[in-house]
Computed example of a mutant assay.
Amino acid sequence: MSLRAAVLGHPISHSKSPALHLAAYAQLGIGISYTAIDVTEGLLPSLMGQIRDQQGWRGLSVTMPLKTAMLSQVDEVRGVARTLGVVNTVSFEDHNGTRKSIGSNTDVAGIVNAVRHAGSAAAPSAVVLGGGGTAASAVAALKELGTAHAQVFVRDTSRTADVRAAAESLGVDLEIRSLTDAARPTASADVVISTLPPRAADGLAAEVAALKTPTPGVLLDVAYDPWPSLIATVWQSGGGAVVPGLEMLLYQAVEQVRLFTRRGDDVNAAVIDVMCDAVGLPRRAL
């Protein structure tokens, strides 16, 4: 029986996940195919129905705009995914001849590892740009990094249900403001996590540059194409550390590979090295 995995989202042609996963499976010597499937929220139930009827599926990576919609499509939601209401990973388990789909969230681990490896403060002052599902994962990651309060800047303050619910469930105090007010708080923060789409932070980047002040903290820009983003360029020129979104993608994919292969301890530094090589990501010293 051939083993399969895939990344689901819309649009999806830009995804680096196939390169990351296939490099890992080749290094591990496991024959799992991994493809990108373009699917909208409306078509997700039909696709998941097909997948349930097909043997050999080991896992699904879930990206925008499906991370909330996937909640109702799995048999069980575990861990921080249940707390946040955000699923970016589906794995399959067999119990007495019955296959069960499990929803989980590896975005949080991806953010935590990426920020820690960049040398963030133990309990950082934090800014999150954006208010959707990935921002909810960012709040959970910041909680793990020791943050009890975060400022969240969004383009539309009426569309912040995901991040508000996450903060309430985690006990993190949020201050939600318009993106037009973000320049000074962003420039002075210890950690900034931008979950905005590509180029959506360009205006803010110009405002930060106009301040002509140092940017001493760590910036993680989840958008990785095109790279470097304007805000990453401005941040680095101000003296701060920049973490590309590709690095977060790497670390969340590492956790997915562990789930999909069911060989967690084998997904080691050698596997991470080939995953980095597959997407041209320099390897940080851990």
Rank of each mutant, 00 (worst) to 15 (best):
A6R: 08
G9E: 13
S17N: 15
S17K: 14
L22Q: 15
A24I: 09
Y25E: 09
G29R: 12
G29L: 09
Y34D: 09
I37W: 05
D38M: 06
V39I: 12
T40H: 01
G42L: 06
P45G: 13
L47Y: 11
L47D: 13
M48T: 12
G49Q: 13
I51L: 13
R52C: 11
Q54H: 06
Q54Y: 03
L60S: 07
S61K: 02
V62N: 00
P65W: 08
L66I: 03
A69V: 09
A69G: 05
M70F: 05
S72G: 06
Q73G: 10
Q73I: 13
V80S: 08
R82P: 02
T83G: 03
T89D: 00
T89K: 00
S91V: 00
F92D: 03
E93I: 02
E93W: 00
K100Q: 10
K100Y: 11
S104C: 10
T106S: 11
V108E: 06
G110Q: 02
V112F: 00
V112G: 01
A114P: 01
H117E: 01
A118L: 00
S120R: 00
A123Q: 02
S125L: 00
V127T: 00
V127Q: 00
L129T: 03
G130M: 04
G131D: 02
T134G: 07
A136F: 04
V139W: 03
V139F: 08
A140H: 08
G146H: 02
T147R: 02
H149D: 10
Q151A: 14
V152H: 05
V154K: 05
R155P: 01
S158N: 04
R159M: 02
T160D: 03
V163I: 14
S169T: 09
G171C: 06
V172P: 13
E175Q: 11
E175V: 08
I176P: 08
I176Q: 06
R177V: 01
A183I: 07
R184M: 07
S188D: 07
V191K: 11
I193N: 11
S194F: 12
P198V: 13
R199G: 10
D202K: 06
G203M: 11
A205H: 04
A205L: 09
E207P: 07
V208R: 05
A209Y: 06
A210P: 07
T213W: 04
T215F: 08
T215N: 04
L219D: 02
L220I: 12
V222M: 14
V222P: 12
A223D: 11
P226I: 03
W227F: 14
P228V: 07
T233R: 09
W235Q: 01
G239Y: 04
V242T: 09
V242I: 06
V243F: 02
G245L: 09
G245C: 11
L246E: 12
L246A: 15
E247S: 10
M248R: 12
Y251W: 15
V254S: 15
E255W: 11
R258A: 13
R258S: 15
F260E: 12
F260A: 08
G264V: 10
V267E: 06
A270W: 03
V271F: 07
I272V: 15
I272T: 12
V274W: 01
D277R: 14
A278E: 05
A278Q: 07
L281P: 04
L281I: 07
P282V: 10
A285I: 06
A285W: 09
L286G: 13
